[in-house]
Structure formats: C-alpha cells, structure tokens
Design a protein around this nucleic acid. Structure first.
Lengths: 222, 222
DNA sequence: ACCCCGGTTTGCGTATACACAAATGGCAAA
DNA sequence: TTTGCCATTTGTGTATACGCAAACCGGGGT
C-alpha cells in the first residue's frame, strides 16, 4: 500500500512503545537519550523526538528535571483510565449509532456472533484483531478528530493494562458477546443501547482486570 | 516561585501557539522549520520540536508529505470539538461533584454570583480569568491525569473558537450564571445536576458561537 | 568520623553540518 | 507553443559538535 521512507524517529518510537507496553522496560526505568539511541540504533535527534512523544502521551514522566523514567501503572491508574475511557467510548458508541454505516456494524455483529459459540477455538490474538477492527469502524463512524484522537491515547495506555491482566478464556468469551451487542445496537441505530452496552462492557472489563492484577491474596502479600 | 531556565523550544511553542490561536497565522499558512525558526529567533531543533507538538495536537496538519500548514477551523470542527468537550466536561463535572473539595466550589459559586448582577462591570478578560480558575479547580477535583490531559487539548482548540466568535456581553453574563449553577451543584455533591448543567452550558455556548460565526446572512454571501 | 567543598563527569538543550528527496524552473526539442 | 527532461533549489530528516548545569565523587578540614 503506502510506502513511506519510514523515519528513524518512528522506528525509535515504535521500539520504545512496544518495550514499555510489553513490560520489557518496567516502570521506573530511567530513559536516557544517548543510551536508548545507541540501543535502538538511531541518533539522538530522532530518539529525542520519540521520547518527547512518549512523554506527551504520559508513558514516560520526568522524575527530576534531568531524568525521565517509564511511568508507573497501578490499579489506581487503571481506574482513572477507565473513567476517561467510559466518557469517550460511550459517546463514541452513541455517535456511531447516530451516524455510522449500519451495514459495517451489522457485519461486525455477525463476526462477533460467529466467534462466540465455540469460544475455545478463538485465539487471544484473533480476538484482539476483531476488537481492533471494531475500534477502526467505530473511529470511522464517529468521524470526529478530537474524540478519536483522545481515544487513541487511551488505547495506547490500555495496552499496558491488558498485559498486566493475563487474559482468561472466560472473560474473552464474555467480551465477545458484549461486543456483539454493542455492534448490533449501533447497526440498529439504537444510541442509548449502544452507550449503555458499552458501559456494561467497560464495567466488566475493568472488574476483570482489577480482579486479575489485584487478587484477594495470592499467597500472602506484606 | 519555580524558575526553570525556560527552554527555547517552549518559547517557540508558545509563540506559534499564540499566533495560531489569535489568527496571526491564519489557516493554510505554510509552516516551514527554517522560516519560523528565524522569525522566532531560535534554531531549527527547538522549533522543530515545537512544530511536532502543534502537529500532535492537531493545530498544524500536513498537507503533503513535505509541507505543514496551519489547520483549518470551521463550524464543523467546532461542532466536533463540542461533542468531545461534552463527553469530557460532563464526566469531569460528575466526578468533581463526587470527590471534589466542596468548599472550593462553594467559593467559586459565590465568585460567579458576585460577578453576575452588574454584568456590565465585568471585563471579558476578568470573565475568562474566572473561567480559568474554575477549570483549574475542576482539574484538581477530577484528579484523573487521562481525563485532564484530554481536556487540556480540547481547551487549546477552544481558544481558537473563542476568537472566531466575538464575545457579546449578554452571552458572557449568561455564561456566568450557568457556571454559578455548575459550581453550586458540585459544591453540593449533586453529580447529576452538575453534569446536566454542564450540558446546558455547553449547548448555549455552542449555539452562541455558531450563531456568531455563521450569521443567518450578514449582508449577502456568495 | 562526619560534613562540606571543589573538581570531574554525565547528560540534556541547542546549534549546525550533511544527505537525500521532492518541487521548480529553464532550456531544448518536437 | 507546448511538452518533457535535467539542473538547481528548497526543505526536511538525521547526525554530530558545543555549552552549560546538575549530580557525583573524592579530599580535606573540623
């Protein structure tokens, strides 16, 4: 398709983003320009740009005026993230129901329904691919640069939460049927149902994540 | 208080931001790194960073792979902006009512009430200062980095809308009393009233702006 | 032994030089 | 006159050099 020269700053950004999201660079890791530049194999200038981008998005914060570290991400952050996510996704669902291409969401609803019955057959990656497709359709339907841009940032952080919470099969299956309902509501133009189904979905997703990372008492935590 | 060295990239960003918001750099203006760097009096490196920041925020967009221009801002953009703003501010108001420092908002409500009666005595700048204080309290009360960050971006764009719509006195007075109600609702912990009063306020604000920039027929537009 | 002071080092912020790609203008040929 | 090709120019992307400020470390004084 599109073949841009692929800038070094983009490679640097992608590399660091992936490492932060995957946990390869755990919270608190000091991010030095020279060090990261050498490691990724670019010069300071593009690496600097990548770091500033991560900093603007909040994945990296400055601990002292001279030292940047990978920002922490705990249960409180996840709760805050989902508060913002609710505001944006419920609105997005409502708007999509009002103006979206109905056939696209009908197709998505069918895809979710097809995936659901034998949930065991659905690999986690396939699930996330389906979600990504849904998100892309949602963005297109919403057709609001400000809203979509805010949602993108939220999703960037969400990737970190997903990693903390090891996905369990039951949750994935439930999530599929929740998405099926949202897609169907949008395809029928039912804005209120779309918004409230999104609310329900996010409620369950948050509960699952918090439960997963904050187990009542795994063994005995001091 | 805090006295940081003030970086050249910050000066460059502030300079360009102000010029875009004020309209000194109208939409469509080509933003070249060297040109702007010379004009503002910094080198290419910090100017480049400033431009990337503006680009990330959407105030500047790339027209072709090599040329960046000040992004346009029309009625459709304002409508989209207010859709996103509604989602974020209503949520913010709700959360502030739930967790905010009630005394702070009681004080704000009083300040708005004090400003209202003789609205003629209130200069536009004083009004905006009061709003800024309200926004700051709101951000503090919400205590959610993701939400506040999204709101900040929205407000950056909102400054452009404000300029397009020449403020009229009546609208300012109405806005003051609308804010008084929101602040009072938050101070009383009434989340629903706070959210709905915010909805009402934004509805009026949007109507006023659109009416102002899109007059039924000022004289006769081809 | 502890604290304070000064030198060294490390790292960011900025400036500038180099490379490459695209746009542009002119010149020549049809 | 128009069109196509080539040279030049313009501008971004990247690399690197320079300067300054803060942190670190070692030595000396109390």
């Amino acid at each position: 398709m599109s073949e841009q020269p692929i800038r070094a700053s983009d490679r640097a950004y992608a590399a660091l983003l992936e490492e932060i999201q995957s946990g390869a660079l755990p919270p608190g890791t000091v991010i030095g320009e020279v060090e990261q530049a050498e490691r990724v194999g670019v010069s300071r200038t593009p690496m600097r740009e990548a770091i500033r981008r991560l900093s603007a998005e909040g994945l990296v914060r400055q601990q002292s005026p001279r030292v940047l570290v990978v920002s922490g991400f705990d249960a409180a952050d996840i709760r805050a993230l989902f508060e913002a996510r609710r505001a944006l996704e419920e609105t997005a669902a409502r708007l999509a129901a009002q103006r979206g291409e109905r056939s696209a969401f009908a197709a998505l609803a069918a895809a979710f329904d097809r995936a659901h019955p034998e949930a065991g057959a659905l690999a986690a990656d396939d699930y996330y691919a389906l979600i990504a497709r849904f998100d892309a359709e949602l963005d297109a339907a919403v057709d609001n640069a400000y809203l979509v841009s805010a949602l993108r940032t939220i999703r960037t952080h969400l990737a970190r939460a997903r990693r903390l919470a090891r996905d369990n099969r039951d949750r994935l299956a439930a999530s599929v049927s929740e998405h099926a309902l949202i897609a169907e509501a949008i395809s029928r133009g039912d804005a209120e149902l779309a918004a409230h189904a999104t609310h329900v979905h996010l409620h369950h997703a948050l509960s699952s994540i918090l439960h997963s990372i904050d187990p009542p008492s795994p063994e005995g935590t001091p």
